[in-house]
Design a protein around this nucleic acid. Sequence first.
DNA 1: TCATGATTATTGTCCTAGACAAAAATGATT
DNA 2: AATCATTTTTGTCTAGGACAATAATCATGA
Lengths: 298, 298
Amino acid sequence: MENDKALFNIGIVERETGIGKDTLRVWEKRYGFPSPVRNEGEDRLYPEQQVVQLRLIKRLLDSGLRPSKVVGLELDALNALLAETPQTVPGYAPELLELLQMVKRHQVAELRLALNKIMFRQGLHDFLSKTISPMNNLIGDAWLRGEIRVFEEHLYSEQLTMVLRNAISMIRDANGSPRVLLTTLPGEEHGLGLLMADATLSVCGASCVLLGVQTPINEIVWAVKAHKSDVVTLSFSSVMPVAQIKAGLEQLRQALPDNVLLWAGGAGVARMRKPEAGIQLMGPLADLSAAVSAWQAH
Amino acid sequence: MENDKALFNIGIVERETGIGKDTLRVWEKRYGFPSPVRNEGEDRLYPEQQVVQLRLIKRLLDSGLRPSKVVGLELDALNALLAETPQTVPGYAPELLELLQMVKRHQVAELRLALNKIMFRQGLHDFLSKTISPMNNLIGDAWLRGEIRVFEEHLYSEQLTMVLRNAISMIRDANGSPRVLLTTLPGEEHGLGLLMADATLSVCGASCVLLGVQTPINEIVWAVKAHKSDVVTLSFSSVMPVAQIKAGLEQLRQALPDNVLLWAGGAGVARMRKPEAGIQLMGPLADLSAAVSAWQAH
DNA sequence: TCATGATTATTGTCCTAGACAAAAATGATT
DNA sequence: AATCATTTTTGTCTAGGACAATAATCATGA
């Protein structure tokens, strides 16, 4: 009665954690974890608890640890490791914590108002790099630790989307330069990073065309041709496997004309080591501004 | 020399086409297609041509055809089938055809301007039911017939999203009634329907909270509790399997308190036969307005 | 001491071949 | 024409193995 939570089959767990089916099975054989129960047909059924652990493990792997060190560990050990992960900055500004409080209290209208106020106070550029970027980390951490629920994260994303879309629609410039096409590759369904990039680029004077998420590679090529884009900007969230990012970038680079630049940003590319040829990896959002300046100065 | 285009491994083909690895392998065994070449390590390598065919096949399957009828077919046959797929009424208003032309010519700014103009001329309510609804059908048909490309559909969606988000942000009313929560179930990643519903409801005086897409069922329940929502509105696009819709609705209905209404709309529910108990199926957008009026009159 | 190259270990992804349950199509019956 | 039972179709899961790319370790020379 106490532990009859939800059970998930392997397909759902793959979607939920971003860890492939094959990998889940081979971990089970090699490390003895995860250890799903089985139904009548011998299909694996993963308890919710283990899915939580898998999410934490994914996060740790993304931050550079090796599977052999973390795959077997219990929740406590995982959290301990996570705490000493360099990425997690403990010193969140009080203002950000206030925003988090609003999310936790489901104060939708207040949250949007607060975001808008900060945006107008700091200016769009600083708003994105000094408030929203760390705020996204804070929200991500809070979710990882189970402090906020999925729907609360959705709520935050929606309000931020509203704020950014409004701002973007005011500063759109069809005649700016460079002409930038923004989208994500198939498999990457998070669009917030794109909005942040769009806002950053637009405020620098670029002319942005947003294509939404999950555009197949050959479609991107067509769109570039249609819009005579100078640059393609892709966003990758932390849930995208590095290998997929690499493969996608390489493929797109080959398919695009040489004179079209390729900029890749987001938490997903932050953990890529060496940059591919012909592809510029953007770490913080400031890199985007710098890249635009460089372009505008020819 | 002519046909040594790109070769894709199975993982990439899965991403590009949305067809799972297992499915690709079992199709090969059952229907003899696709027929990838192999590298030294016996890994499958799919020629670009076959990936194109697979994309067409995916379209046809989504529109209701069965794999045994289409998986083996050549390009010509696929295109022929695509041409005779159920076409909705050809009698589109000239104005809509003009909008389609803008999409085809990639006139992004003009398209948004045109949409905004029509919205202000017709009013939000008529704009959605008399222009956007049929326009979405027109776009969907054009895509199915290969008259427009994926990126052009994305482009249209983005402009419409911008227009609707702007409108919604102006008419949000935190104190309206009923209090409505809008989202989609896991598996449904199309958010345009939600925006249309949000706009329709908001203009009728409802107080809407948009949760984004793919909210797990138990999260919806939590969100309802947090917001003291009177109604949950779900949107289902045509790509969602009816069975999945039914199962999801039933599950959510059971999980929600009895006094919370459940409204379901979108192209996906249009082909559902009988309505489930405790769930109101919304056909055209006008149904939503009517439902709000009914609610407001107690 | 640090960098560079070679060697071993780790790890994700792909393979074959088969099984099964859910969904769809078909046939039978009211 | 609608409902129910049966058969076919179809996607997804299983096991167990193989391999190549990446990372870690060790050895070498500057």
